[in-house]
């Protein structure tokens, strides 16, 4: 079994030792980074440091050296953001630091996305994402989108201040099985419920899974609004989207 000391990159070793405390997450990260090529470990360390120039350079070098785009994304960029997500969840870092890490991730993804698009890899599913009507905040939503895309989902971003009609149009246009709604304000959270009611009125509720999130949103509120799931942060959003889509496919008639 892999040990922390087997990870060659000192930054990654130190980060896991200091900030990752849940045994299953330690095991998963140790296994992942032990297996990952040293170049990928360095990319992940650059992500964790929020160093966009370094990630830009290392990603370019990795692709030029013949590493697969998927490998760079999974073992470098996403693996690094996984540690960032844990640090954010545990309040070791806050939004400014996460934004810097996301900026570094974007610097890497700009080299990866064109290759993945050209390769014709099938997305896991399409997710419609938007901040609800009356709310112009989108940092959390954008982080979720970045992590969803990095995890293999196709995301249609409706932006901020999204009306129920815009959500409905997008669901119908793209045939998306999942919708993600975000709100940052307690004053706009009720619009999540209104949007779900509009899905019911439009006869779409049975065909679409609804996940909600945002700083003031809780599981209890999500349940009250009739959502299918609640994600506390971007990592939880990805894991929820995967769970929802797996459950939907499991329950689909053969």
């Amino acid at each position: 079994m892999a040990e922390l000391s087997d990870i060659k990159n000192a930054t990654i070793r130190a980060e896991i030792e200091e900030f990752v405390t849940r045994p299953e997450e330690i095991a998963r990260n140790v296994a992942l980074f032990t297996r990952a090529h040293e170049r990928m470990q360095a990319i992940a360390a650059g992500i964790i440091d929020g160093d966009d120039d370094l990630v830009d350079k290392l990603t370019t070098e990795a692709i030029e050296a013949g590493h697969e785009a998927l490998e760079v994304m999974d073992d470098g960029l996403i693996a690094g953001m996984g540690v960032v997500g844990i640090k954010f969840r545990e309040n070791f870092i806050f939004v400014p630091e996460v934004l810097a890490c996301a900026r570094a991730m974007k610097a890497g993804m700009k080299h990866i996305e064109p290759i993945l698009s050209a390769s014709g890899v099938e997305p896991i599913a399409t997710v419609i994402m938007g901040t609800v009507k009356g709310d112009l905040h989108d940092i959390g939503k954008n982080l979720c989108i970045m992590m969803l895309r990095g995890s293999g989902f196709e995301v249609i971003d409706l932006g901020v201040d999204t009306s129920a009609d815009a959500f409905i149009d997008a669901i119908e246009t793209h045939g998306a099985p999942i919708v993600g709604m975000s709100a940052l304000l307690t004053t706009t959270m009720p619009n999540m419920g209104k949007t779900i009611e509009a899905f019911i009125d439009a006869g779409l509720r049975e065909q679409v899974l609804v996940m909600v999130g945002g700083a003031p949103v809780t599981q209890e509120f999500a349940d009250d609004m009739g959502a299918d799931g609640y994600g506390k942060d971007a990592l939880a959003c990805v894991s929820l989207a995967k769970q929802l889509i797996e459950a939907k496919r499991r329950n689909a008639p053969a």
Partner: peptide
């Protein structure tokens, strides 16, 4: 964005 009766006015921070 001054909105309507049932929504708060907001600044277009983007």
């Amino acid at each position: 964005q001054w909105e309507q009766k049932d929504n708060w006015p907001t600044v277009r921070m983007r």
